[in-house]
Computed example of a mutant assay.
Amino acid sequence: MNGPGGGAIMRPNPNSDRPLPVPSVQKPLKTSSGYTTLRPRVAEYFDEFINGSKHLRKDIIGLMGQKVAAGLIRSVAEGMQLSMGWSQDDCDKFLPKVIPARQNNPDDPGKAPPVRALSEDERASFELHGGSKLTQGDPPVVYDTSQMFSKFMKNGYAIFVMDKSGRIFSAQHKVGLFHHSSFLAGAAVAGAGEMRVESGTLKAISNKSGHYQPRAEEMVQVLDELRVRGVDLTSVDYIHMVGSTINRTPWGKASEFLNRFKHNPQLAPH
């Protein structure tokens, strides 16, 4: 059976809720100094905080222009809001710096804005608190992604990362402006992906991040952190990305994945 884009969808083992044999010597996921497995940012994104997103300059704006020419959308700004997570303010502020160069010289992609990198002080307002009921900010507000966007899972989802200490940060995805790398200013993460939260309750989660390409090793850390916080993972849908944006395993519930691979993450699909 093929998934989106023709990639093969791998179905989970019927006994996926049955844990694999536990090694006689268990390595704790989290030690006194934090989580033990970190994932660095993919090298192609190293200059995004200075020179902006290469994909925005070379691919995305051009694609939107093609859609306008084909009559699929009315303007580049409309396309960026519908499928890239931008606001009207973002379009007003940043598109004039990119589009004129493309119109005058198709070989010149224009000047993309730098991708945002949060400082430690800014980070605080993006941190999620609690578990069974997630809140964000100070004063805390019940977290809800219903009006948010993530490029892969689309409407109703937000992106997130987890740092070494187990702090989880989440926000709207804005392609070319605000990425997974934005939260920790490009530092390595203990986990990353997308999440759907309704009125503070985590409903679904994935390990999709092009910037970090998290493996099962990082995802079991995220799921175990949520479990410790009191999240009922038996009610949380989990989609496991394998290698690319088109090969994905609709695993089932997050609890199944954690139970099966917590002590053997290297045996999960990679």
Rank of each mutant, 00 (worst) to 15 (best):
D121I: 14
E120G: 09
T135W: 03
F160A: 08
V175L: 11
G176A: 06
F126Q: 08
G130Y: 03
V115C: 06
E120Y: 12
T145I: 05
D121H: 02
L184D: 07
G156N: 02
F160N: 10
K154E: 14
K154L: 13
G131N: 05
F178D: 01
L184W: 10
K164V: 04
H180T: 11
F149D: 03
F160G: 09
K154S: 13
Q147C: 15
S165P: 03
F152K: 14
Q172E: 15
G166I: 15
G130W: 01
G166R: 10
H173D: 14
D108S: 11
G131C: 08
P139N: 07
L134F: 12
L177I: 01
T145K: 13
G130N: 02
Y143S: 07
R116A: 11
P114V: 00
V141N: 14
N155V: 13
G130D: 04
V175T: 11
T135K: 09
P139L: 09
M153Y: 09
V161T: 04
F152L: 13
F183N: 11
F160P: 08
F169M: 15
F183G: 03
K133G: 14
K164N: 06
D108R: 08
A171D: 08
A124N: 11
V142T: 10
S119Y: 02
T135S: 06
K174C: 13
G166Y: 14
G156M: 12
N155Q: 15
Q147E: 15
L128I: 03
Q172M: 12
A117I: 01
P140M: 06
M148R: 10
S181N: 06
R167S: 13
V115L: 00
D163Y: 08
